[in-house]
Amino acid sequence: MKKYTYTEQKDTRSGFGAGLLEAGRKNPNVVALCADLVGSLKMDPFIKEFPERFFQIGIAEANMIGIAAGMTIGGKIPFTGTFANFSTGRVYDQIRQSVAYSDKNVKICASHAGLTLGEDGATHQILEDIGMMKMLPGMTVINPCDFNQTKAATLAIAEFEGPVYLRFGRPVVPIFTDSDQKFEIGKAWMVNEGKDVSIFATGHLVWKAIQAGEILAEMGIDAEIINIHTIKPLDEKAILTSVAKTGCVVSAEEHNRLGGLGDSIAQLLARNNPTPQEYVAVDDSFGESGVPEQLMEKYGLNVDSIVKAAQKAIQRKGK
């Protein structure tokens, strides 16, 4: 098992804030919109440096998506910012018609995704957003794993032409990816090569998958760990190559089991190479209030869940 260490921990939303500032410096067409959550989205540095390119929309997310779509006409590259729940479920029809169907170059940037939003509870903890966004034709869906990767992803989507959903979160998590990484949309990242089981993880679950890999290694299980930061378009080649080698799969994500990364992988495998698969995901339920780590444990999204899922997947091989 390849060794991953960290010296610093930060929230992925701060990676977005840092990336937005840098994207703004690189391209004068980058503009930012926010629905009354500037501090939560870490947009302050961008606003301070480019006040004329920032638009405070107020608590009106539908209007924000429409304005962003309109701003692309004439060449602007709008980044909208609010919580993941208000970035998707609240404005699904606006995204569908004015952004996705109209093929507008809007970057929908969504913080506080999933259970790790914590104490605010289920009204704010969206676990269905990946599903909603990936179902939209032409939408790119990205869920990076740490500060550095979120920053790199933010820079990459500014240069990419087309609608993007960028999902990140609130909690402070280890920074274990390179600060100078090149983010390639749609290209999975091989975290650890192994032969016994393929663990495909996204977002906050990537670090947990690495920890699980270390425990599995102590048990004599050689886990291949792949970071699927781009859920759509899915890196089908990377997944099929890995599965051809390992013969069983664990998918890990901070999302409902229905409609998430695991679903995309299962569909791919059903069509190409049916394979036993275990899901580390929320089992079709809403979340609740609590400290993020408590919630991750209660809803089965912790290191132990990944270890057990890997063992189970391996047992099912060849049956």
């Binding site: 539908a62 429409g66 304005i67 309109g70």
Partner: peptide, 13 residues
């Protein structure tokens, strides 16, 4: 209900 927002966006641009 979406066109006014879109038009405002294009006007801002």
């Amino acid at each position: 209900g979406q066109g006014l927002s879109v038009a405002i966006g294009s006007a801002l641009t």
